[in-house]
Design a protein around this nucleic acid. Structure first.
Length: 718
DNA sequence: AATATGCTAGTTTTT
DNA sequence: CTAGCATATT
């Protein structure tokens, strides 16, 4: 058979990985080295050359986007639909396994997925129910605690509180929250994986099934795996038959703070003795950009070691712009974008990257003013919007009367006169009878135990849900969702409360939701697992919250955090806000581990750039209402000087921006001044004009002081 | 139940 | 500064 299409166009290292024989394999794939290509060609090689059945290949990614891309490219290469092949996210794969064996792990076979927002609400509910103080146990913190424990594979009984009363309480909340999930037939994201790990751990015959089935397990972005995911991989590979093919880059591990364990890369080497291959040839960036990035990441220790190279062009130097303040930084970047567009290049070739989301605002405003199209990544995705989630909560309650999380969410949305007192009564009644809220409501209505107003309001609600439930029995999913949107009158609710444009956007989202339901095509696997279309739809909404908004791409300048930029590339990249405290972030500089992660983030950012890379920082920046004077990021200092071109603002420009009084000119921010009594210091802030202006100066000896310009008689100093 | 006011905290994100 | 939240008010 002709296999040239699989191995042609691969470099030696790539080909070696793709055609590797009977061994586990770790591919250390640098940025832009053709990582996905190797995975895709490896799958094709296994199927077409080694004649491995597609059924026995499992490919796991972290995001739906990556999974979809891989599936698409495999199909393109094989020229056939990749049916039988399991490609999906960790959560998607675990969900699929769990649907097949729900009963075996004691799970409601009709379980639905609880996403982060509903999980938060349920945890908050649990804390309130336990009469604990939300100040002492902030739901966000408890949510983080529970998820982190689950990601480590720990059930409440496994957690060592070592007498810490706070921890003991958290464990108790975890326990109660878990019980609530089980009563309602709900499974959160971490639970999807934890249950599967427990299934495989406790049911040896099941484990053997999967070990026999999956001869090849491929893992993408291996450096991002957490404890639980690594446990899952180890279980699957415990049989004789399974070969692991993992691809990752320890230098691009930027998710340690959410449980990812870079150490897994080293553990993997110890545990499985894999062939270790390195993909170091880069097909994305200029030599200069790569050398600069290599040099910066070289300041980390404990690396697996890797050096990117290219046989492409030397390229332009890395440009470092020292702005006077954040406004000037913004203007500079926007004017460079304008130059780029004037030279005939596309907006979508520009990536403006920053450390934290709050930084996007300045760029949005400036781009808007300059009439340059842009798109900001991050923010709410389609299935996370309140109106969409409210509608889906109706669908959930109609589908599953036991879903208390859904009940709580919409019992009084839109407001129909069911207040907190009424709901509290229902909760109590439900708890006393060990029933779901819905059951308790119906029972209370039937028993006539309720007061007039609450009774009427609840009767309206119950009638609505019953009507919808009846309708659901004889109509399609699309018709059903459309009906929900009409009958719940959510639009009217938002129209009455919000400005017209906001409500209009919600209307559009609900239209879009109806369309999505109408066009929803249940996958074969879901059908085989005897899921109703409604259950499938709800699952997809939870598991692929964002896949829906892909349409409005257009040709836009791309604004995003450094984290979101991973995996992307742009001919022109700006890394803005390169200041100590901002990047590396203040909270990350203390622990060495966190600092190296910040440096990896810098490495990720730099290696996004194909042709031109700008780093910029502001010498003064308004943050949280006050002006701060940061020093340039240490990562700027770690650039090799020979590859850097420094750009300073024109002196007259920066002077023009300094606040100036009518009479004597005031010192600029950051300038050095001398005072008769306090000595020499740096100007931190200037408020007001002329002689009345108040100036804050950080004196070298005396510390920060506020002085009035007219009386202080300051002299310029150096 | 809806609106007004006051307070606090302020990375990074996917599933 | 400002957004989000909790409490107070009508």
């Amino acid at each position: 058979m002709d296999v040239s299409h699989i191995i042609n166009d691969l470099n030696d290292a790539q080909r070696q990985a793709v055609t590797l024989g009977d061994a586990h394999c770790l591919v250390l794939a640098g940025a832009g080295s053709g990582k996905t290509r190797v995975l895709v060609h490896r799958v094709a090689w296994l199927i077409q050359v080694e004649h491995v059945s597609p059924m026995s290949v499992l490919a796991v990614t972290f995001t739906n986007k990556a999974a979809n891309e891989m599936r698409g490219r495999v199909e393109q290469l094989l020229q056939i639909p990749a049916s039988g092949l399991w490609i999906g996210t960790f959560h998607g794969i675990c969900h699929r396994i769990l649907r097949l064996h729900a009963a075996e792990v004691g799970l409601n076979p009709d379980f639905q997925i609880l996403d982060s927002d509903d999980q938060y609400r349920l945890i908050r509910r649990t804390i309130r129910e336990m009469q604990l103080d939300e100040g002492e146990f902030p739901p966000r913190v408890v949510q983080g605690f529970i998820n982190a424990r689950k990601d480590d594979g720990a059930r409440p009984d496994h957690i060592e509180a070592s007498g810490n009363p706070l921890t003991l309480q958290m464990i108790e909340i975890y326990r109660n929250y878990q019980a609530a999930c089980e009563r309602s037939g709900l499974v959160d994201f971490a639970e999807l994986m934890l249950r599967v790990v427990e299934l495989l751990r406790d049911h040896p015959s099941r484990l053997a099934n999967y070990q026999d089935r999956f001869a090849h397990v491929m893992i993408d972005e291996f450096q991002d795996t957490n404890t639980l995911q690594y446990a899952l991989i180890r279980l699957l590979a415990g049989g004789r038959r399974t070969r692991l093919f993992v691809v990752g880059d320890d230098d691009q591990s930027i998710y340690g703070w959410r449980g990812a364990r870079v150490e897994n890369v080293q553990h993997f080497v110890g545990d499985f003795k894999p062939e270790v291959l390195r993909l170091e040839q880069n097909y994305r960036s200029t030599q200069t950009i790569l050398e600069a990035a290599n040099h910066v990441i070289g300041h980390n220790d404990d690396r697996m070691g890797k050096n990117l190279w290219t046989d492409g062009e030397q390229g332009e130097p890395v440009r470092v712009f020292a702005a006077y303040n954040e406004d000037e930084e913004t203007e500079f970047i926007v004017s460079r974008v304008q130059d780029w567009l004037e030279s005939g290049r596309k907006p979508s070739g520009v990536g403006i990257l920053y450390r934290s989301n709050a930084q996007s605002r300045l760029f949005e405003q400036a781009l808007l003013r300059a009439d340059i199209p842009y798109r900001v990544y991050g923010g709410l995705r389609f299935f996370e919007r309140a109106e969409v989630r409210d509608s889906l909560a109706y669908l959930r309650l109609v589908h599953n009367p036991l879903d208390d999380a859904a009940f709580e969410r919409i019992v009084n949305v839109p407001a129909r006169g069911i207040g907190e007192r009424t709901v509290a009564g229902l909760r109590e009644s439900a708890r006393a009878q060990d029933q779901a809220l819905w059951e308790a409501t119906v029972r209370q209505l039937d028993s006539g135990a309720l007061a007039g107003r609450a009774r009427n309001a609840l009767a309206v609600f119950v009638a609505l849900i019953r009507e919808l439930r009846e309708y659901a029995e004889q109509s399609s999913l699309g018709a059903m969702v459309s009906r929900i949107v009409q009958r719940t009158e959510l639009i009217q609710h938002y129209l009455a409360r919000e400005p017209a444009d906001r409500a209009e956007a919600r209307q559009e989202n609900l239209d879009e939701l109806v369309r999505a339901a109408e066009n929803f095509d249940q996958s074969m696997e879901d059908e085989q697992a005897s899921l109703t279309p409604t259950a499938s739809f709800l699952t997809q909404a939870a598991l692929e919250a964002g896949e829906h908004q892909g349409e409005k791409w257009q040709d836009c300048v791309q604004l995003m955090t450094l984290h979101s930029a991973k995996g992307l590339e742009f001919p022109l990249v700006f890394m803005a806000g390169m200041e100590e405290g901002l990047f590396p972030h203040r909270k990350s500089v203390e622990e060495p581990g966190r600092l190296s992660e910040e440096r990896r983030l810098a490495y990720v950012g730099m290696t996004r750039a194909m042709e031109l890379l700008y780093l910029s920082y502001a010498e003064s920046r308004r943050l949280h209402g006050q002006t701060l004077f940061g020093r340039p990021s240490r990562f700027v200092g770690e650039l090799p000087p020979a590859l850097v071109e420094d750009i300073r603002p024109q002196l007259n420009v920066s002077q023009a921006r300094a606040p100036q009084g009518s009479g004597g000119s005031l010192p600029g921010l950051g300038s050095r001044v001398a005072h008769a009594k306090f000595g020499v210091g740096t100007v931190l802030a200037v408020e007001g004009q002329g002689d009345n202006a108040r100036i804050q100066i950080n004196f070298d000896d005396a510390g920060p002081k506020w002085l009035v310009a007219g009386y202080a008689s300051l002299q310029p100093a150096c």
